[in-house]
Nucleic acid binder design. Structure first.
Lengths: 336, 336
DNA sequence: TTGTATGCGTTATCAG
DNA sequence: CTGATAACGCATACAA
């Protein structure tokens, strides 16, 4: 790899001049500018970003930490895709790093990004606790935004969906259509998201004065296979249900598959929510779909805040206030 | 952020000694080692990876370029997940950057990684042509491996699945079960993968002396929505078919949904291939599932080669030969 | 408008 | 065993 020094020699100027040409900062005559570009071309020169970042102590990168156990399904893809697009718009690069499978490793991933001198960090946590994250935010210079959690000390550093509310709305919608026996497939119960969605379902039943039957609640692990197994279990145990809520799209797909396989006809009139832009399944309610728009909203908000912190120093007080509201509304819209 | 210099001062030693302690290289007395660790702790010191990488001219990172238009569906997640795990095993970090939406931008993403002095690059291309990639490989010092393409000049730098063969096998399996009217939902026809799968389907019909009906072939754009639309179109046009092949899982899901919605009973005995580990759909054949194992195989092979190039210099000639064979076989297995 | 000198935080090569 | 000191490649304040 040729260096700036070599380009300078070829062009008959100094390193500083080459640097000026490249950065566009400072005055350079048109003549030497051309010479320099020619030399760059001839040498096949590419700047060393490590050196540049070291010198400027900014990497123009935004790091993102996600556990690889979450690298599956359309939910993650959506998050990553939205994040990449927004970061791209801001002229920066998104770097994704694996949070692996423990709180300790999630912490290490964050430290790795800090060691790389990333300008900011997006944390989509799986193992770290609220308190852990509050501490980390406190101890870190770089802006950190947390997705999908509610922080205690630094609420403005987090954006989240109202999972409980959306599950509540979903269950309510079914109840209003006359369903009384509503089965529920939850995600892994060690996940806060799963717990909140389950709570929303229970709350809806409670408000409608419908007894909560433990048999109607089956735990899955977010995958299509688990959705299918859950339905199989319900059927095998002769659990009666006229409607079903799955806690995410992937399990909904598996459940749908198992239902049709079992020869169950699915009524057409109960198509409530969408999977991508199509109604997924009569009779089947992928709760996650109801937060699909909010997901993109969350990510956009996260990155907007990060960037305003990077560019304009601190977050505006207003910003912290408004976004939660917006997200809540969009959840409500999607579910209604 | 405190620097090594500050730690050195705190510990009453020189930078060099601190560096030795951290790297474990060179001789340091146990006493000073302890002092240094204490100072590190006290200062809350973290090494600056930019500086380290600049000095060693190695980043311990492997870069990966993927267009964000491919950041969707379980296929991408699977690739990323496998890649992250393998790279992690090798003690390196995987950095994902966006190839955006043109050949030019894919090229720029590669250059960005080179500028970061990544040790190696994984390219999962969408827009670059074979010739482009052959050129880039030629002009670049760092090892580059291409996923899912067949290169001309540097075949050992690419690993691919036999898409045509797997689609052929899928169609053949249906034909052997007595189906004559097999509909086919292709992916975007500007994608080589889609073209190859379509070719496999056609080849199978040809060998079975079944006429190819253009009406039975519908183009989608890889999403569930498109799968649903495709089925709706087939039904609306009264196209007769007793079996259906979708070119990927996502479209298969949409198709399944539309079929059940239309009240079509799906026979139980034609469950051929799996979606994750469950049979997806009677009567529905998600071709992509048939290459799910090969996908993980591809990625593993890609990273193995990269690492052996990094550690052991060049690839073994043997390696280039064997892997293609392995992949072909696993495709055949999955489809049989 | 351009060149010189210094700093960014490490690693590595020398002497001591 | 340890400490100066020179790279690493670039940016930038300061001179010229």
């Amino acid at each position: 790899m040729s260096t700036m020094q070599e380009v300078a020699k070829k062009a008959g100027v100094s390193k500083a001049t080459v640097s000026r040409v490249l950065s566009g900062k400072g005055y350079v005559s048109e003549a030497t500018r051309k010479q320099v570009f020619a030399a760059i071309e001839a040498a096949g020169y590419r700047p060393n970003l490590l050196a540049r970042n070291l010198a400027t102590s900014t990497s123009q990168c935004i790091g993102m930490v996600v556990t690889n156990t979450l690298y599956s399904g359309s939910y993650f893809s959506e998050i990553l895709s939205q994040a990449a697009k927004k970061v791209e718009e801001s002229g920066r690069q998104l770097i994704l790093v694996d949070g692996k499978h423990s709180a300790q490793q999630e912490r290490e991933a964050i430290e790795f990004l800090l060691d790389l001198r990333c300008d900011a960090i997006i944390l989509y946590p799986r193992f770290l606790t609220i308190d852990d994250m509050d501490d980390i935010i406190e101890q870190t210079r770089q802006p950190i935004m947390v997705v999908n959690r509610r922080l205690r000390k630094h609420p403005s550093h987090a954006v989240f969906c109202d999972h409980k509310g959306s599950a509540f709305n979903a269950a309510m919608a079914l109840i209003e259509r006359g369903h009384q026996k509503i089965a529920f497939i939850t995600g892994s119960l060690d996940s806060p998201t799963a717990q909140e969605r389950l709570a929303g379902y229970k709350e809806a039943l409670r408000q409608a004065a419908i007894a909560i039957e433990p048999q109607r609640i089956v735990e899955g692990k977010w995958t299509p296979a688990c959705g299918a197994k859950a339905v199989a279990a319900l059927l095998a145990n002769n659990v009666a249900f006229s409607a079903l809520i799955a806690s995410n799209d992937d399990m909904a797909v598996g459940a749908l598959k198992q239902l049709t396989q079992a020869g169950l006809r699915v009524p057409n009139d109960v198509s409530l929510l969408g999977f991508d832009d199509i109604p997924v399944a009569p009779f089947l309610l992928p709760a996650l779909s109801s937060v699909k728009d909010p997901v993109t909203g969350m990510i956009h908000e996260v990155i907007n805040r990060l960037i305003s912190m990077l560019d304009g120093g601190d977050m505006t007080p207003q910003q912290a206030f408004i976004s939660e509201l917006v997200l809540r509304e969009s959840v409500a819209d999607a579910a209604s």
